[in-house]
Design a protein around this nucleic acid. Structure first.
Lengths: 122, 122
DNA sequence: ACCATTATATTTGCATTGCAAGGATATTGG
DNA sequence: CCAATATCCTTGCAATGCAAATATAATGGT
């Protein structure tokens, strides 16, 4: 692995961090769509079902923000050992946002697809 | 259009701004992949081929950043009236980044797709 | 000569996000 | 009482998109 290669890798890593912005909110709402989950469960569940690895420092501020915006709500429950768990679920307002966000995401994917295709001659 | 509806629209607009982060670098590189273009040509070309509307305040800082990172390079040329145009083209390093970014984008799209599908029972 | 218009490029500053790093809280077992 | 485990929270930084304002050059009308 040359030095040039690792510089490229660093650039890509920094870029992928930027690429996640916004997407993670959609991802959380999608993951909570069917049933409530708590923080750690979200992290492991998302890692299992996709190639996304979220860290605690990423997900907890995000959950707090979503709750503040009334997209999700939480309830506290005792777990089997360890600290009490906070279960999050999607609010009605969150479902409306999820629909809008899914539409926006689909549109963005279609745009990138269109630009990936060869350009037509003018 | 109720007040609640417009609040939702505002939220979605703010979110879509975040969603573009990172994607726009990929979009520019894709748009310049086949031939050089100048700023305004990029804006109108991308708007025509996709549903993305970039503004000057968005694209010029982006182009400067890409040039600083040696992903694109520019040359100055006179246009038919108006200020001289700056034509941008992708560097070899930019092509390597474009490949890596395309791969990262594909992976992200696949992840969101996977989370959109119904969850399998545990 | 002058000014408005059109076409193009640049700069500044703000709001927002992802995340590393560190710390806080609660339960269980030795 | 301490260590380990499970879970959650907070602070601060780096990076980005964009509105708004500004700059530059050529042309055409008066």
């Amino acid at each position: 692995m040359t030095q040039e290669q690792s510089r490229l890798d660093d650039s890509v890593a920094r870029w992928e961090t930027q690429l996640r912005k916004g997407v993670l909110e959609l991802v959380i709402l999608l993951a909570l769509r069917e049933r409530e989950k708590y923080g750690f469960e979200l992290i492991s569940g998302i890692a299992k079902r996709s190639s996304l690895e979220l860290s605690e420092g990423t997900i907890y501020p995000l959950l707090l923000r979503l709750a503040k915006d009334d997209l999700i709500k939480s309830r506290l429950a005792q777990g089997d050992g360890g600290a009490p768990r906070k279960y999050y679920s999607v609010t009605p307002h969150g479902r409306r946002m999820l629909d809008a966000m899914t539409a926006g995401w689909t549109k963005l994917v279609a745009s990138v697809d269109a630009l990936t295709a060869p350009e037509i001659d003018r």
